[in-house]
């Protein structure tokens, strides 16, 4: 069953403070978080989080399209790197 709308999105409160601190510092920072369950809010757009997957902190660069998803969706706990072949990476 989906979460009731009246409750609003779930996010661990301390993430908001960390996001504010990182934005205020203006430095090249990765915010290490364990809270995979938190919803990505518009407040986080433009920041980079290191989301723990039980092994390491995977960098997650938050963009507008990710708002409403959970952090954990972008940090898989089981990984298969696959073959590079003709695949490309874009520098953000």
């Amino acid at each position: 069953m989906a979460r009731s709308v009246w409750k609003g999105p779930f996010v661990d409160g301390y993430l908001l403070n960390k996001a504010d601190a990182s934005r205020a510092s203006g430095r090249n920072e990765v915010i290490r978080i364990w809270s995979r369950r938190s919803t990505i809010l518009p407040h986080f757009v433009g920041l980079t989080f290191g989301v723990y997957n039980g092994h390491k902190f995977l960098p997650v660069q938050v963009t507008e399209n990710m708002v409403g998803h959970k952090f954990g969706e972008f940090s898989p706990t089981r990984t298969f790197t696959g073959h590079s072949s003709d695949k490309k990476a874009r520098r953000g």
């Binding site: 601190a21 090249n28 920072e29 364990w34 290191g50």
Partner: peptide
Amino acid sequence: CRPDELDGREV
């Protein structure tokens, strides 16, 4: 350039 790491643990 390694980024600074801000610990996002709950205080």
